[in-house]
Every structure is written in structure tokens, then in C-alpha cells.
Nucleic acid binder design. Structure first.
Lengths: 146, 146
DNA sequence: CATTTATTGATAATGATTATCATTACCATC
DNA sequence: GATGGTAATGATAATCATTATCAATAAATG
């Protein structure tokens, strides 16, 4: 968390960007947040501390966090982009419940390796990927059966 | 192709929906199309045969085709939904070039099996998934290196 | 043929995100 | 500490794909 602040500070100065109270506030909220979130959700949070903050500022800050390598975009395909921590949060994929929306981070290195091989078998050089597994979580399975 | 028409006809009558020239026209264009496409692209095609057709009709028809099991939505994450043939076009994932956008359909049954196991290891019942592999296609790799 | 109900096409609405732009704030230099 | 240059902010307009609305039209059925 200290380290993340440091990284962002360096990112700002390296790009001739300024440190502002708004950016500090949004950075704080981001660092406190554990679950992934949308721009609007983060906006609602920071608005409590600074009701005059604009949502454009939140959108802009999220772009910066992503570029600085602290955040990562997550697209669940519902038209709303979410963000999650990227620093010290190694790559993973998502397992999402179709019923209640609960998500679990998953990672399988065998799958990762196979993805690379599949790409290579078509002559592609794999740079990244997206994988979303959809299903029913344990709770919703129980509810559905009864 | 005959079979697909039959399926769609049955879908219409089973749902008390009507067969109209517009639907016929869009169905034709859909059946002729091999590559995936967006609503707008299909609209541009059918407009040549019937300039008075509305794009809302195309959007509506794509929903029907998907519900009838003839089409499948493909979300490349660029904000535009595409469709591809679903009938006699078994499940596959997509390998996409980050540079030129070229796509290849891929399928690896080992990956599919592992996905199921990963989900199960969290108590989830896997219903479906999305996997997009991004990289550089052979052509773009060559261009980038030179 | 008349009635019912689905369909169409034009257009307005939606909703997330981005662009614009006047105003404000930061920061280095004098 | 005033100043000039430039970045940042917040309000708001714009964007863009998609959806909803609705009056007009067209099928199908008795």
C-alpha cells in the first residue's frame, strides 16, 4: 500500500502530472477497496468525502491508475467497466455466478500454458487473454434445486 | 442452410411470430454471411436490397436469430456486439490479432475440461464461458520485427 | 372482409463513457 | 510572493450502440 503510493507518485512526476487532493482522495479510496468496482461505485464513495468532486475526475483517475500499473480493467460484458488491483495481484481469471453475480478469482497454469500453445499453433504470439467462466455458485445451486 | 430456414420457421410459428419480407431478407443475408458481423454491418447489407428497412428491425431480428439458436453473440469488448452462426457451428473460442483485428476460431477440449474442473473446485456448476486470446498474427509479427 | 394482433420504421431515450472548455490550482522562476 | 505557463477540475455537452416508444401498416384468422 505504501509501495503503491510510491509507484503512483513516480508515475505522476515522470509524466509531468500533478498531485492533487482529488487524486489523493481517489487513490485512497482505491487502495482501501478490495473487491472490483465500477467508476460509479468509486465515485459514490469519494463523493462522501468530497461532495464537489466530479465523476469525470474519477474516470480520468482510473485511466491513470491503469496506466501506472496499479489497476486493471475487468470487463464482465454488462456494459460497465470495472477495475481491480493490479499491483501484487497477479493475473487471474474470473468465475462468475450467473444468478447472483458472485465472483471468484481463479488461475490455472495448465490452462495458461495451453492457451499459449493454441495461439502458437496458429502462428500467433500470445500477448494476453480474457477468460470468464460462468455458472452457478454453490448457494444458487442449492436454491435452484429446491 | 435449408435446415436453418426450417428451424427459424418453426421458431416463428411456435412463438406466434409472423413471417415477413423483412425477416426473410435479413435471414437470407445472415445465412449468406460466413464471418461474424455487427448489426450495423448486416444493416448495410440488407439496405442494398431494401433501402427502406429500419435498423431497429435488424436489431430485433438478431435477437430472434439468437433465441432460435441460429446465431450467437460474440463480444470482443470494443462496445459493438457481433453475431456468428450457431447452428452446425459448435462452440469455439477466438484468437484475435491486437494489430489488425484478424480472428481465428479455436477450440481445445483439454482447456474446456480444465475449465469445468476449475469451476467445480469452487463448487460452481459451469454453464458456459468466454475466452478470448489476444496476440499478434503471423503477418503482423513479421511487420513488427522489420 | 373485418378484426385482432404482430410488425415495421422513425425517432426519442438510454446509459456509460469521453470530449470540451472556462475556471481554478499548481509550480518553477524571477 | 507575484507571475506566467500549463495541468486539473467540474459541469455539461457529445458520442455511440442499443432499446423503447408509438403511430401506421400488414398478416392471419374467423
Amino acid at each position: 500500500m505504501r509501495k503503491e503510493r510510491e509507484i503512483f507518485g513516480k508515475y505522476l512526476s515522470r509524466h509531468n502530472l500533478r498531485d492533487t487532493p482529488q487524486r489523493e482522495l481517489i487513490l485512497d479510496a482505491f487502495l482501501k477497496r478490495e473487491k472490483h468496482f465500477s467508476a460509479e461505485e468509486l465515485y459514490d464513495i469519494v463523493k462522501k468525502s468530497d461532495p464537489s468532486i466530479g465523476q469525470a475526475t474519477v474516470y480520468r483517475m482510473l485511466k491513470l491508475l491503469a496506466e501506472a500499473g496499479l489497476a486493471r480493467e475487468v470487463d464482465f460484458g454488462d456494459g460497465v467497466m470495472r477495475y481491480e488491483h493490479s499491483y501484487n495481484h497477479p493475473h487471474h481469471d474470473h468465475l462468475v455466478c450467473r444468478e447472483c453475480g458472485k465472483t471468484v478469482e481463479v488461475m490455472d497454469s495448465v490452462i495458461e500454458e495451453l492457451q499459449k500453445r493454441v495461439a502458437e499453433s496458429f502462428g500467433f504470439e500470445l500477448t494476453d487473454h480474457e477468460m470468464y467462466l460462468y455458472g452457478l455458485c454453490p448457494d444458487c445451486r442449492r436454491k435452484t434445486q429446491k
